[in-house]
C-alpha cells in the first residue's frame, strides 16, 4: 500500500470535506507573532524544572510552616503577597537592570546600551552612568543587591542560587555576558542579577527578566508549602494565579534609585531557618 498517497489528502483536510484553508481562526491575514520574542527563554527560566538548584529553597516558607505562620492556603496567600511586594519587587528591579546592562554579542553593538556613554562624571555614583569601567558594573550592581538584603542568611541563599544559575545558564545559553558575570563576581552574584543576565543570554527583554524574577520570588515558597503541609496543589496554583505580578515590575534606569522594600519578617524567618536543626530546604 502506498502510504503517502492515502495520507496526503487527509493532511490538507480535503478528505474530510474541510476547505483547504490555512486560517482556522477566521481572522484575515497572518497572525501577529511579534509578541513571542524572548518568550521561550522566559518559559525556560521561570520553569521550576530549570536545573539550577532552586527546588531546594523555600524562601522562608519552611520556617513559616514550622512556626505555624503558614498553616493553610489563606496564610500562604498573605505570605506570598508580602513576599512579592517586597523581595519580589526588589528582585524584579535588579533583574531588569542586569538584563538591560548585559552585553550579548549576538546583538549588534549599536543596540547594546553603552554604560559608559552617558558618564555623569560623578565617580561616587553607583548608577550605570557612573560606572567608570565595564568590569566594575557587575560588582556595582551586586553591591546594590547586597545593600538591599538585610539578613546574612538571605544574602547567602541568594548568592548560592545565583552561582548555581550562572553555572547552569552558561551551558544552556553560552554567552559573553554570563562569562563576564561569573568572572567579575566569582563567589556568585545575587540571584536576581544572575537571572537578569541569563535572561538576556536567553534572548529575553528586561521586562521579561523582571517577570521571571517576580514569578520565581513566590513559586519556590508556594511549592515548599505544598510539600511540607500537604496543601491542595490546585488551590495553591489558584493563589499563584491571583498574585499581582505586573504591579511590582517597573522600568529601571538609575541603579542608585532601585527600590529597597524590606520585609523584616522574611529576614527573621531566614535567620531562624539556619538555626533550626531539622530542615529540608536550604533556605
Amino acid at each position: 500500500m502506498d502510504v503517502t498517497a492515502t495520507e496526503a489528502p487527509a493532511l490538507t483536510g480535503a478528505a474530510s470535506g474541510m476547505p483547504p484553508t490555512t486560517d482556522l481562526t477566521g481572522q484575515p491575514g497572518p497572525a501577529d507573532l511579534t509578541g513571542l520574542t524572548g518568550l521561550s527563554g522566559l518559559l525556560l527560566l521561570a520553569d521550576s524544572r530549570l536545573p539550577a538548584g532552586g527546588h531546594a529553597h523555600s524562601g522562608g516558607a519552611e520556617e513559616a510552616c514550622r512556626t505555624g505562620a503558614i498553616s493553610g492556603p489563606e496564610d500562604l496567600a498573605r505570605f506570598l503577597r508580602g513576599r512579592l511586594a517586597t523581595a519580589g519587587r526588589v528582585a524584579a528591579a535588579l533583574a531588569w537592570s542586569a538584563c538591560a546592562a548585559a552585553h550579548v554579542p549576538k546583538f549588534p553593538d549599536t543596540e547594546v546600551p553603552d554604560i559608559r556613554a552617558a558618564d555623569s562624571g560623578d565617580p561616587t555614583s553607583t548608577g550605570p552612568a557612573g560606572a567608570a569601567d565595564a568590569a566594575d558594573k557587575w560588582r556595582l550592581l551586586d553591591a546594590e543587591a547586597d545593600a538591599r538584603i538585610a539578613s546574612p542568611a538571605q544574602r547567602l541563599a541568594s548568592r548560592t542560587q545565583g552561582r548555581l544559575l550562572v553555572r547552569t545558564a552558561k551551558r544552556i545559553w553560552p554567552s559573553r555576558a554570563l562569562e563576564e558575570l561569573a568572572r567579575d563576581v566569582p563567589d556568585g552574584a545575587h540571584h536576581p542579577i544572575a537571572l537578569g543576565v541569563a535572561a538576556r543570554a536567553a534572548g529575553c527583554t528586561p521586562a521579561q527578566a523582571a517577570m521571571a524574577a517576580a514569578y520565581t520570588s513566590v513559586t519556590g515558597a508556594a511549592t515548599a508549602a505544598v510539600r511540607l503541609l500537604g496543601l491542595d496543589p490546585v488551590t495553591v496554583h489558584r493563589v499563584l494565579a491571583d498574585l499581582p505580578y505586573d504591579s511590582v515590575i517597573a522600568e529601571q534606569h538609575d541603579w542608585s534609585a532601585l527600590p529597597a522594600h524590606a520585609a523584616p519578617a522574611l529576614d527573621l524567618l531566614a535567620e531562624q531557618h539556619l538555626r533550626t536543626e531539622v530542615r529540608l530546604f536550604v533556605s
Binding site: 536545573p51 538548584g53 527546588h55 531546594a56 544559575l165 547552569t168 511540607l228 529540608l280
Partner: peptide
Amino acid sequence: VQTGCCPHTAIRDDIAANID
C-alpha cells in the same frame, strides 16, 4: 547538600547543588 523534600530531584533532575 539539602534537597528540599526531594532527594531524587537533587541527584537526577536538578543536580546543580551537588555539582557545586
